[in-house]
Simulated scan of single mutants.
Amino acid sequence: MKILLEYQELPQYLRRYFFGFDKNLRFVGLLNPLNAPHHFKSYEWCEYREGVVLEKCKDQLPFVDVGLSKNVLIDKKVDPGLRVTVKLPRDPPEGIDENSGDIHGSVVAPGEPRSEKGYYWGYSVRVAKSLSEVVTGCTFPGGYDLIIGTSDKGVDAKKAEFSEFSHALVVFGGVEGLEAAIEADSQLRGSEPSDLFHYYINTCSRQQVRTIRTEEAVLISLCVLHDKLSEKGIKG
């Protein structure tokens, strides 16, 4: 699952650099493409693009493959093989070919396209070995300030009124639900959902089947929660 999620997030032109042959990827052609804003075609211009640092250099500065027909010369030394976010001139050059001059770009923080321009710029994948690690392993300073558990035993999501938040976490269980995940975690054994989650909700209140697949529950829940979370999310 980790490999598949990372493969889907990566722009297509970078996949040959970061993914070799892997048996877990033999059916990736069946996956629906994300078509995320940072998945550009070679003829599309944007002031930000994802790239990989190449061995090729000029005046000790490396070139980066950002998926254009020509590589970009960046402004600082970076080890080859690393993924970087590159900022380009706002307007494209008149022509991009082997005879034209170098395209210059600068390496910026991966979050800049989101913070400066409001672009959705993909996601990162974190693997947790237990439910407690899902919560405590948060990479944001101060952790998650809104934690939502989903369960058919929770309250109807339509009735939930969330508090304002900066970083939210929505947790889904397996076939046996989050209750089983809590019981299986030695750090949480004996705990109640109310001890772990700020809200414990049912996003499929009219469920007419015994179980809903997690991949189905994620899509249903995000649709149900989208407006409620958008209203309460604190930007910046």
Rank of each mutant, 00 (worst) to 15 (best):
F162I: 06
P80E: 08
P11C: 06
T214W: 02
D91R: 10
G81C: 10
G173C: 08
V175G: 06
E161I: 15
S69R: 09
K87I: 01
F27I: 04
I201H: 14
F140T: 05
E55W: 06
L131D: 11
Y144H: 15
K232L: 01
L178F: 13
Y43D: 15
S69L: 10
L54I: 09
F165C: 06
L225S: 01
F197W: 13
E116G: 03
H167L: 01
E192P: 05
D185P: 07
V125E: 04
L131H: 11
P93G: 06
D156S: 09
E98Q: 12
A180F: 14
K56E: 10
M1Q: 01
E216K: 09
L222H: 13
L54R: 13
Q208C: 08
S230I: 03
V134D: 05
Y13F: 10
F40D: 03
G236W: 00
G143H: 11
Q12R: 13
K235T: 07
V86S: 04
G20W: 01
L34C: 03
V53P: 09
R210S: 12
D22T: 01
P11A: 04
T203Q: 05
E94R: 05
G149H: 12
V78Q: 14
Y43R: 13
D79N: 14
S124C: 05
C223H: 14
Y120C: 02
R49D: 03
L54V: 11
A128H: 08
V134C: 12
P11G: 05
S166G: 09
L14I: 01
G233D: 02
I212E: 00
Y43V: 12
E161D: 15
F40N: 00
V78M: 15
K228I: 04
T85E: 05
D185E: 11
F172I: 09
V175A: 15
D91V: 12
C46F: 02
A168S: 14
D59V: 04
S151M: 12
G143A: 11
Y199L: 04
K2Q: 01
